[in-house]
Design a binder for these strands. Structure first.
Length: 210
DNA sequence: AAGTCGGGGCT
DNA sequence: AGCCCAGACTT
């Protein structure tokens, strides 16, 4: 009998412990909520590998919303430019200003306030909650959508995948699970030619092959 | 609902 | 040449 927990979540977490990208700088445990948010915005439609090479200087120059709001937009643009989607520089600046306008002056800890920030959509808001508050939910990006729709052999409908992902997310290990899905999708269950022959998972997708 | 942003890597 | 990438905003 197929069991999502036993056949998907557990082996995926196990794979991640040994093969995950544990060296990504924004995954370091002592990152501030703003540093987490900064990373999430830089990662939008941008490979983790590309962001890995630009994140440390970025976080060093802009460690707080105050430093971003005080910087000229052109200066931020110059740092974002190598990653593409330069509009994110303006998004980031407006986002920092919004954060400073809050009573706390800090990154919101609730979903409605997070999605209200410029440049922060559903995925980014959820990811911030996962990493900052440890909330037991999932964030669906192109990787997660591809992985789950394939493994469970269901249509890649956004809302449906989101419900499935939330149901799978371990309440106390949502960050590990999120990283596991992202890393596994990027390295094994890839978009182009997935490494099914060396895949450690066995699920509905296996019987769906050929 | 469709269009736009985007450089870099991979096929 | 074309596809893809921790999406979100604008029209």
């Amino acid at each position: 009998m197929f069991d999502p927990q036993h056949d998907f979540v557990d082996p995926l977490l196990d794979w991640h412990e040994r093969n995950g990208r544990h060296d990504l700088p924004w995954r370091e445990p002592d990152r501030t909520p703003f540093e987490v948010l900064l990373a999430e915005i830089l990662l939008q439609r941008t490979t983790a590998e590309a962001v890995a090479g630009a994140y440390r200087p970025f976080a060093a120059r802009y460690p707080t919303p105050e430093t971003v709001a005080a910087a000229p937009t052109e200066e931020i643009e110059a740092l974002v430019a190598p990653l593409g989607l330069v509009k994110r520089a303006a998004y980031l600046r407006r986002c920092a200003q919004q954060i400073l306008a809050r009573p706390s002056g800090d990154v919101p800890r609730e979903y409605p306030e997070l999605v209200g920030l410029h440049g922060v959509g559903e995925y980014t808001a959820r990811s911030v909650l996962i990493h900052v508050t440890g909330l037991g939910i999932a964030a669906v990006d192109t990787n997660v959508r591809r992985l789950l729709s394939r493994f469970f052999d269901v249509t890649p409908d956004r809302d449906r995948i989101a419900v499935l992902a939330d149901a799978l997310a371990p309440p106390t290990r949502s960050a590990d699970f999120q990283h596991a899905m992202l890393d596994f999708a990027a390295e094994v269950c890839t978009a182009g030619s997935p490494a099914c022959s060396s895949c450690p998972l066995r699920g509905p997708c296996a019987s769906a092959e050929e």
